[in-house]
């Protein structure tokens, strides 16, 4: 939370999505980041869940609006609608299950099919606390991330390793793109985005996109 500011006060609102196979820990990463909670007895996510967190990024107050999606392939019929308008994505695999890493390429294709090419994507190897069970080598994942120009981090929602870092890094990179754009005068407007304005990398007609304005 950002100091004394009211909940609704922020400079930017960034929409993020969490994607990846079922059971890799998406919901727990989200609850660790937004509520500092981890639930060993969590239920499978059905459909989509949602949470927000306001945090400081390069001196600006940024509100992350995060959509957590069901991992099973069949749910993409519902969840892919939530990719639209996202400016950042965390593509998560489970370091103890190699198949979840192999599927990252498919998730990425799916994501890129629905979003702007400038979307900031971070590949995340979760459950890194289970060191003795690791099935995906860090180098292997790093190489994939480099090939696909993704950011990369290994996290543990359980012991909180890198969770804050991962989200903050994604938000920082989005902020960099946004502020660079306004400095370059690229796009329709050379002005800095207004207070509390949602930054969508690409404006589209998505019904799910939320144009933020300081609600009161």
């Amino acid at each position: 939370m950002a100091g004394y500011r009211a909940d609704e006060e922020y400079d930017y609102l960034f929409k993020l999505v969490l994607i990846g196979d079922s059971g890799v820990g998406k919901s727990n990463l989200l609850s660790r980041f937004t509520k500092n909670e981890f639930n060993l007895e969590s239920k499978s996510t059905i459909g989509v869940e949602f949470a927000t967190k306001t945090t400081k990024v390069e001196g600006k107050v940024v509100k992350a609006q995060i959509w957590d999606t069901a991992g099973q392939e069949r749910y993409r019929a519902i969840t892919s609608a939530y990719y639209r308008g996202a400016v950042g994505a965390l593509l998560i695999y489970d370091v103890t299950r190699h198949a979840t890493f192999e599927n990252a390429a498919r998730w990425l294709r799916e994501l890129r099919g629905h979003t702007d090419p400038n979307i900031v994507v971070m590949l995340i190897g979760n459950k890194c606390d289970l060191r003795h069970l690791v099935a995906v080598k860090t180098e292997e994942a790093k190489a994939f991330a480099e090939r696909e120009s993704l950011y990369f981090m290994e996290t543990s929602a359980l012991d909180a390793t890198n969770v804050e870092n991962a989200f903050t890094e994604v938000l920082t990179q989005i902020h960099k793109i946004v502020s660079k754009r306004s400095v370059d005068g690229g796009g329709e407007s050379a002005d800095l985005p207004g207070k509390g304005e949602t930054i969508n990398v690409k404006e589209d007609g998505s019904v799910l996109k939320r144009m933020g304005c300081c609600s009161n």
């Binding site: 239920k43 059905i46 459909g47 989509v48 519902i78 609608a81 019904v207 799910l208 996109k209």
Partner: peptide, 20 residues
């Protein structure tokens, strides 16, 4: 407010209210 029923009601139908 751009609330779409898939944001809250998918579980109602998919699990017939047994999820939560």
């Amino acid at each position: 407010e751009m609330i779409n029923p898939s944001m809250y009601a998918s579980q109602w139908f998919i699990t017939v209210f047994s999820y939560s």
